[in-house]
């Protein structure tokens, strides 16, 4: 063998190791480690926007809210992240409850909707609402027609026998969306009747998906008929050109509040606060339209899309985030669902 090759290989290996340990910027620039649990393009938009406005280098990781929560918890002894933006509010509240995130009262609070502030208060100010979206469902018009099914309008419609094998929702054990569905149904119909509803619905479910928005994506591609999801997710599929019709159930419905939290022990806590204030401003929140995010933003002055479901026209339940976001209640409901619903024959 030639030595040249051996040494070339080892040099390549060595320089690779070095390259892997070198931080992206060799100068000690200002930076921010940003965990994002919203859709990828929205996350990118926020990261690049903040970099451009402040010159602070942003390192972004996008993971679902469940994954991010698990990561922050695993890293709690030695936090790596600074700020966590996006994703449904429950894991943010859970993180606040477990002391994984830091309380912060932003000067921007005056510009926000009440629901954003009350979210902060339920989490001891360690989180805040950045957007909200109502729960509902969407169906694929073409598949519905091909199966000669009537268009559903209410929650109770979904339990009718003709929809057997046509409804999809996520598994509440793995998805925040589906847990919100379970909690909404319990609050809407009361616990006993709510669980009767879930049992009846179970007979019509063709698959409990792992991820929250998967049912509507499957419906968009014609792999499913009806998907129980957040309405803004359904609107997004419709806006992307899929034959999806969005339904706000006639009995009323629950909603989620997307959260933002500063991680406790953040290495760049000051920059995290800068990001926090910046992310709550009307201009920044209006940019959500660029990436087809159809949630209602928390800043009162932020623009929203004409396609976005208008929360003020929906019958919304008085969702008790404190109670249903707590670990104990969550565990109890999930266990009950596991024992009484998921084990039934379909």
């Amino acid at each position: 063998m030639n030595f040249k090759l051996a040494s070339a290989l080892s040099i390549a290996a060595l320089s690779g190791v070095l390259a892997a340990t070198v931080p992206a910027s060799a100068v000690a620039a200002e930076k921010l480690t940003y965990y994002c649990s919203a859709q990828e393009d929205w996350c990118q938009l926020m990261a690049k926007g903040f970099e451009e406005t402040t010159g602070i280098k942003v390192n972004m990781t996008r993971k679902s809210s469940g994954e991010t929560f698990a990561q922050i918890k695993a890293e709690s002894e030695n936090p790596k992240g600074d700020i966590w933006w996006g994703g449904t509010g429950d894991p943010h509240l859970q993180a606040a409850e477990e002391g994984l995130t830091e309380a912060y009262e932003s000067g921007m609070r005056g510009e926000l909707h009440d629901w954003a502030i009350s979210q902060a208060e339920s989490g001891g100010n360690a989180t805040i609402g950045i957007y909200s979206g109502a729960l509902g469902y969407g169906y694929n018009e073409e598949v519905l027609k091909a199966n000669n099914l009537p268009a559903p309008e209410c929650w109770k419609d979904l339990t009718k026998p003709e929809y057997k094998g046509h409804v999809q929702m996520a598994n509440p054990n793995s998805s925040g969306t589906a847990y919100t569905t379970l909690a909404t149904i319990v609050q809407l119909f009361g616990e006993d009747e709510g669980f009767e509803f879930m049992k009846a619905l179970h007979k019509n479910i063709n698959q409990y998906t792992k991820s929250g928005s998967a049912p509507i994506k499957a419906a968009a591609r014609g792999e499913n008929t009806i998907g129980i999801v957040f309405m803004h997710d359904a609107v997004k599929q419709a806006a992307s050109g899929f034959p999806i019709k969005v339904v706000a159930p006639c009995e009323g419905t629950g909603y989620e509040i997307g959260g933002m939290s500063i991680i406790k022990g953040a290495r760049n806590a000051e920059n995290a606060q800068k990001f926090y204030d910046w992310a709550l401003s009307a201009d920044v929140q209006s940019r959500s339209l660029e990436v087809k995010a159809f949630q209602v933003m928390s800043n009162k002055a932020a623009q929203s899309s004409p396609l976005a479901p208008d929360l003020s026209k929906l019958t919304l339940i008085d969702y008790d985030f404190k109670k249903y976001g707590s670990s104990a209640e969550r565990k109890r409901l999930l266990k009950k669902w596991d024992d009484e619903v998921s084990t039934l024959p379909q």
């Binding site: 469940g66 929560f69 793995s174 792992k210």
Partner: peptide, 13 residues
């Protein structure tokens, strides 16, 4: 393999 993944990242954590 997927159950392990969801036991960690899922809402059940």
């Amino acid at each position: 393999s997927t159950e392990i993944f969801f036991a960690i990242v899922g809402a059940q954590n």
